[in-house]
């Protein structure tokens, strides 16, 4: 096998491996971007959890909640393009009305908790914290975590 043939072969293998997930470079960008948003939610709710469990002081609780609400505000548009792949189930688009409503509730809910945290402090925000964390309710229907 010439070096070129070997190179061409390995490129083809890489292309085949990526093919099922990535329809085109643009589609890959759409998926990467919405996953950056979701991973930020993951890390910020992790940070919140550590505050709620009492290990970390609540000084930055409002900051973490506000980050969640800012990410939420970007999320509906990030899922608007019909690009299947990642861990999204096809239902994200086939049941768009319900998915959009869940996203919208997440946007308004997390914005409300941010306002409570800023105006009334972390203790009051704790009473409403689950309004900023409707993660599981959406994932159970629209995310398949077994997909890569």
């Amino acid at each position: 096998m010439t070096r070129f043939a070997k190179l061409a072969g390995s490129v083809a293998i890489v292309a085949t491996m990526l093919a099922p997930v990535v329809a085109s470079a643009d589609d890959k960008d759409v998926i990467d971007y919405r996953q950056h948003l979701m991973n930020t939610l993951d890390h910020q709710s992790g940070a919140l959890g550590m505050i709620l469990s009492g290990v970390i002081p609540d000084k930055h609780m409002a900051d973490h909640i506000e980050i969640i609400s800012l990410v939420a505000s970007l999320s509906p548009k990030a899922f608007a393009p019909h690009v299947e792949g990642g861990q999204s189930k096809p239902e994200v688009w086939s049941k768009a009305a319900d998915f959009d409503k869940k996203m919208k509730d997440f946007v308004t809910g997390s914005a409300n908790v941010t306002k409570i945290a800023r105006d009334q402090g972390p203790t009051e925000a704790v009473n409403h914290i689950l309004d900023a964390l409707p993660c599981k309710g959406c994932h159970d229907l629209y995310r398949d975590p077994s997909k890569k």
């Binding site: 991973n39 930020t40 890390h43 910020q44 992790g46 940070a47 550590m50 290990v55 970390i56 980050i67």
Partner: peptide
């Protein structure tokens, strides 16, 4: 906690 902030 600090790693969650850095990952963000």
């Amino acid at each position: 906690y600090r790693e969650d902030i850095m990952k963000t």
